[in-house]
Design a protein around this nucleic acid. Sequence first.
DNA 1: CCATTTGCCTAAAGGCATTAGGCAAATGCA
DNA 2: TGCATTTGCCTAATGCCTTTAGGCAAATGG
Lengths: 189, 189
Amino acid sequence: MVRAGLTPERLAQGGAELADEVGFDQVTVSALARRFDVKVASLYSHLKNSQDLRTRIALLALEELADRGAAALAGRAGKDALAAFANVYRDYAREHPGRYAAARFRLDPEAAAASAGGRHAQMTRAILRGYDLTEPDQTHAVRMLGSVFHGYVSLEMGGGFSHSAPDSQESWARILDALDALLRNWPAP
Amino acid sequence: MVRAGLTPERLAQGGAELADEVGFDQVTVSALARRFDVKVASLYSHLKNSQDLRTRIALLALEELADRGAAALAGRAGKDALAAFANVYRDYAREHPGRYAAARFRLDPEAAAASAGGRHAQMTRAILRGYDLTEPDQTHAVRMLGSVFHGYVSLEMGGGFSHSAPDSQESWARILDALDALLRNWPAP
DNA sequence: CCATTTGCCTAAAGGCATTAGGCAAATGCA
DNA sequence: TGCATTTGCCTAATGCCTTTAGGCAAATGG
């Protein structure tokens, strides 16, 4: 019989596509096998288990997101950088809901260390270079930005803002204005 | 044989406890049946299906959270109210991680309408009475506060802030300071 | 060209969700 | 109190998912 040419990378890629189609928590080793037209057990030569699959998809999503973030930050500073970076998260979540959910998957410490998580933190810090914050406020601000981006996107995707005025796009824009204003006037302790 | 005295309410309660013990997504009809020392099929007289169980747990968690929020807001205003309300979310998530996760579970529209979701939005609006915002900025601010609270708690629970200085408690306090400052100086469009 | 490795397969066991059908306990009404 | 009905939990069965073991054929490399 002809071999399918599976690799962990191709499986993670296929898993990511599957996640966008059916949702990250519907990503199952069985469904992935069907997608590659292969028997389920075959995947276990390339994947440790189902958790391993999910982890690989998460790592892939984090890398993609970090790449987009880096591209968005290039040549920008201040509010411009802030908005561009924030939009990367929001747009990625809209284009790739399954991958975005994967990026929020809780990784075990080992995978987390090998992930693009560090790049994300670095980029957020880079945005803050356009504002006048010193440690430890810079760290507090990094955490706050991460919270707003993640929180907003996650509530928006959950449909939290969809059935009421004003429209979500407008809130997003005004929240970015507000964050910019806040970072320019970060309160003293 | 002696009857177990199951009801949808007792099952939701047991499910909530189970969620706190093993995590919301490990809450399964089977595990719940074991907890009540009853056969799995028996639960289907009281629950439509597994989704129904999760929905009931989510509704229960949302009610509990709204009750705590209401208690925290009573007699407070301004930053005091803001911080008390924010701490309700954070503390609830720490005490009841499974229930908190349940509260974030995506409900179908019908369940969402019957949920305490509306009370949550009302309470957040009540906090903003202590600040000088008019529509539509008030709505933007409601959405932003929701995003920060949810985002921070969720990143913190995911371990995002645990292995780095400064300590998460300090960031949380400073972020609440920052939000208070921002609401007092909300930027004009 | 053949030995070894590698990749996908069949088979099987165990878990969860869900439905159908049955019997006994509880309930309600004369 | 006595009996009919309803209700609650049970057994049985199906189907899908995960994971492991063991086998055969394709690819590889000396």
